[in-house]
Amino acid sequence: MALLEVSDLHVSFPTPDGVVRAVRGLSFAVETGKTLGIVGESGSGKSVATQTIMGLTRGARVSGQALFEGIDLLAMSPKELRSVRGAQVGMIFQDPLSSLHPYYRVGWQIIEMIRNNHHEISKAKARERAVELLRLVGIPQPDRRVDDFPHQFSGGMRQRAMIAMAMSLNPKLLIADEPTTALDVTVQAQVLQVMRRLQEEFGTAIILITHDLGVVAEVADDVVVMYAGSTMEKADRYETFGAPHHPYTEGLLQSLPAYGGERERLRPIPGQPPSLINLPGGCPFHPRCPYVMDRCRAEMPPLFEVGGNPAHTSACWLSRDQVERAALRTKVVGQPLAAPAVP
């Protein structure tokens, strides 16, 4: 059984302009010790989905199921959920400066996290643990820096302190929402390394939410590609990047500068993402899709198995045979792309 199994999650927000349908029928599973990457552009619902699972979206209409070790998180009372948050599931957010309280010392904030959940731990013990955690995430001189305020930390150190805090209760699952987006590349490499090492050491499952395809390619075992609140494609990282089936995944990869070779003209996805209030009928990607067929405008495709691989699914009406799909790709793009990887 997977550690966290989300099935058919729907989240919508009533607003004066109409109902914003942020997440529509999202399903995924995370195994212990694995990393699941959720990729998507702004407004694809990737953050809303995980925040809803943790009970952090107020005023949303939610349906579906999120089984964490067999227990539905969405059916829990706020009090029950509080015992899961932090202790069982740790969270890291994008902006480490606004996630840390500027008024309290970094160590104090970690100690509070520990003592709040384990009242029996003495202050001195909790402090020891905080120092150890800071050392674990690579903060130099942790016994001194534990008494620093957040503003005395650099951006990368703050994010590492956030990771230390999220890991303080040895959670089984870590949800990292754009953890490195605000950081420079060299610092990003440091933070990703810390996360990877912690995962190896403690077997934590990680959900990594990001818009950076490079980061996903580097750290995620499995990848979910989201667009306009729906899952477009699910596969392991080699399939996602080597043999994407869904035209949206393909479009994303093609619009990256590194992908097209040296100084070739980029191939952006034409048009704009749809409004979540007035979604187009059928497949939400059809207005921007180069392969669009009549059926796409009328009917939303379910997730089909691709190439007989149950771990690779794609919500697209195109041929599920990888060879036929590759032939079609050549026809539309005009030149062959990477050959499909044989699993």
């Binding site: 990003q188 990703l192 490079g214 390619a217 990282r237 080699y238 590194a258």
Partner: peptide
């Protein structure tokens, strides 16, 4: 340090941290 959007390449390059 730049992440490469290609898992095959990213696993065998030498990253300087």
């Amino acid at each position: 340090a730049v992440p490469v959007p290609d898992p095959k390449k990213s696993s065998d390059r030498h990253q300087i941290i």
